[in-house]
Amino acid sequence: MSSTAELVQTIVGKHGTRREHLLPILQDLAKEQRYVTEDAMIEVARALDLSAAEVYGTASFYTFLEPVPTGEHVIRICKTITCYMKGKDEVIKAIEDHLRVKLGGTTTDGKFSFFAANCIGWCHEGPAMLIDDKVYTKLTPKKAIDAINEY
C-alpha cells in the first residue's frame, strides 16, 4: 500500500466514514501533507464511497483545503482595510524581498507559501498574519522577517 493510502486509512479510521466526517478528514490531511493531494482525494473518495469529483468539489470550496501545492509553511497576511491602514503593504514588500517570492507564490525551495487572507480577527493589532496556525500581530517589516526566521 502506498504511504498516501496508509495515511488516509489512519485518518479515516480516526474520524469515521460518514459524509460529515469529510471535512475533519481533509483538514487532517492538509495538516499532514501540507495540502490535499490528488491521490489523497481519490483514496478518501474510495473510503467514504463518494465520487472523487465530490471530494474535490468540497475541498476546493475552502481556502484552507485548496488542492494546490503549497510550501512547508503557509504565511497568510491579512489584507483587510484596517491592516492596510496600519502599514500592511510595507510588510508585504519586506516579506516579498526577503523570501524572493511574490504574494500568492511559493519559494523555490518549497519552504514557504505567501498568501493574502481576508480578516483574521486582529484588526486592533494590525498588521497581522498567520504562519500555519500561529498568529503574529503589530507587524513591522523587521518583526515579520524575524517571525519568518523562526521557521
Binding site: R18, R19, E20, H21, L22, L23, P24, L26, Q27, G57, T58, F61, Y62, T63, F64, L65, A117, N118
Partner: peptide
C-alpha cells in the same frame, strides 16, 4: 468542537450547517 476552513460564508447559519455535514458551505 469542529473547525472551519477559511470561508466567510460559513458564518451564515445554513452554510455553517452544510459545512458541518461535510458539504460545500453553500
Amino acid at each position: 468542537i469542529k473547525s472551519g476552513s477559511g470561508a466567510y460564508v460559513c458564518g451564515e447559519e445554513t452554510a455553517l450547517i452544510e459545512s458541518l455535514e461535510g458539504y460545500r458551505g453553500e
